[in-house]
Simulated scan of single mutants.
Amino acid sequence: MILRRVLAALCAAAALAGVQVISATPATAAPRILYYDASQAQEFVSVVHQGAQIWNSRVTNVRLEPVTAGRTPNIRVYADNNWPRAQTTSLGNGRWWMGRQAVNQGYYQPRIAAHEFGHLLGLPDRRTGLCADLMSGSSAPVSCTNAYPNSREAATVNANFRTSVSVAPEAYVWAP
């Protein structure tokens, strides 16, 4: 009992002196920023931005931002007449194409953009045929307009980018 009172008094004195003895709140990690270049996405530039914003609204450990002057993009986006596709070089890095073949067949453009960003964020195709699964891609009906990842897909992306944790500085006092 006396030891507890002494330790409490020492902690109170340290706190009054401005020394943090221990922190009960965990440090929050800043999201990892991935820069994308949509300058070669031709008529799909606004859809590319929309796909990025969809992910930004659903995940916390990573953020997709348009590349700024002087930066090298992690992701490059192109447009062509083939099917949409992605090539990753590592988690968060690579390129993807907004393919006009899927657009011409009537697939929802924001869904295509969000789906292809999903590959760069570490998600594989899952041919479930369900509109609720963003990564089901073209196996979902053409009429599907869901462009948002489901909770499992968002949780996987958050887990993929959890390693970029930063810890707030703290001071510790050795108390007898």
Results as ranks from 00 to 15, higher is better:
T60E: 08
N61W: 11
V62Y: 02
V62T: 06
V62Q: 03
V62M: 03
R63T: 05
R63A: 08
R63E: 08
R63F: 06
L64D: 02
E65G: 13
E65Q: 14
E65W: 05
E65I: 14
P66V: 10
T68R: 13
A69Y: 09
A69K: 09
R71T: 14
T72M: 11
P73V: 15
N74Q: 15
N74V: 12
N74L: 07
N74R: 10
I75V: 15
I75L: 07
R76F: 10
R76T: 11
Y78F: 10
A79R: 02
A79Y: 00
N81D: 13
N81L: 12
N82D: 11
W83R: 04
W83I: 11
P84H: 07
R85H: 15
R85Q: 13
A86E: 05
A86L: 07
Q87A: 15
T89L: 06
S90L: 07
S90T: 11
L91R: 02
G92C: 06
N93E: 14
N93L: 08
W97Y: 08
W97D: 01
M98F: 05
M98P: 01
G99Y: 03
R100G: 05
R100W: 05
A102V: 12
A102D: 05
V103G: 05
V103R: 01
N104G: 11
N104S: 13
Q105D: 06
G106N: 10
G106T: 15
G106H: 04
Y107S: 06
Y107N: 04
Y108P: 02
Q109H: 10
R111L: 08
I112L: 07
I112V: 13
A113N: 03
A113W: 00
A114N: 01
A114S: 07
H115R: 09
H115N: 12
F117W: 08
G118R: 00
H119F: 05
L120H: 02
L121W: 01
G122Q: 04
L123Q: 13
L123E: 04
L123C: 05
L123T: 06
P124E: 14
P124M: 12
D125G: 13
D125E: 06
R126N: 07
R126V: 04
R127T: 13
T128G: 05
T128V: 11
T128I: 13
A132K: 00
D133W: 00
L134E: 00
L134I: 05
M135D: 03
M135A: 12
G137P: 01
G137T: 03
S138D: 06
S138M: 11
S139H: 05
C144W: 06
C144G: 00
A147Q: 08
Y148H: 10
N150L: 07
N150R: 03
N150W: 01
R152F: 09
E153D: 10
E153V: 12
E153N: 06
A154L: 05
